[in-house]
């Protein structure tokens, strides 16, 4: 949904809220609900392995996940909309993962972060579930081992887009399956090398 322009953008930049022409927005309720769902998508803390460290780094000062209204990682699955499966899922963890997914309220989404969660990755063996999509429906797959914060944010933004457009909730209602979107890896694209500001 494209929100109606609230006023002259330059006036808003200069004078803040005073620059807003009118203080109410009109729109369809359905659109507003989708918009607000996308912009306060609270993730459940589901850090498993290496990817969890990058997930925490995404929430840290430098990458600042708070920009997307997502800095509140909820410890309780009942308060979360999004499960970021960050890391390899072992056979012992799989039932617990499913239980936590079942405890989350609808509408809920799943991002499979990293190759281990997506496909088992390099650990093609007895201990690791070869793809978390065998247990829960996955909406977005983020590649990388581990995916850097840029890739994770790319996956999250892709998900937001689909939530805002309503595509995702509709499809889930029909089949119960995830959206199965794959994004491309975005890390390692800094050309500046080490930048340290004192």
């Amino acid at each position: 949904m494209k929100l109606p322009l609230l006023g002259d953008p330059e006036a808003i930049l200069d004078r803040g809220l005073e620059g807003v022409d009118h203080n109410f927005v009109t729109g369809k309720l359905e659109e507003l609900v989708k918009w607000s769902r996308a912009r306060s998508c609270w993730p459940a803390t589901f850090g498993l392995a290496c990817c969890a460290i990058e997930m925490m780094a995404t929430g840290g000062a430098h990458y600042d996940l708070a920009r997307y209204g997502m800095e509140v990682f909820r410890a309780s699955p009942r308060q979360a909309d999004l499960m970021i499966v960050a890391g390899r899922v072992s056979q012992k963890m799989a039932p617990i993962l499913r239980r936590i997914y079942d405890q989350m309220m609808e509408p809920k989404w799943v991002i499979s972060m990293g190759v281990c969660a997506s496909s088992g990755g390099m650990f093609n063996n007895y201990a690791i579930v070869q793809g978390v999509d065998q247990i829960v429906p996955v909406d977005v797959y983020a590649p990388g081992c581990p995916p850097g914060p840029e890739t994770l944010m790319h996956a999250i933004l892709t998900l937001h887009e689909k939530i805002t457009s309503g595509e995702l909730t509709q499809r889930r209602e029909e089949t119960g399956a995830g959206a199965n979107l794959s994004v491309s890896q975005q890390d390692g694209q800094t050309s500046t090398g080490v930048v340290i500001r004192t």
Binding site: Q91, N124, Y126, A127
Partner: peptide, 17 residues
């Protein structure tokens, strides 16, 4: 391993899976 697991994974006759 889970308590109900069968076999001992690092034995050589246990398949990698």
């Amino acid at each position: 391993m889970p308590p109900d697991w069968e076999g001992h994974p690092l034995r050589k006759d246990f398949a990698v899976g």
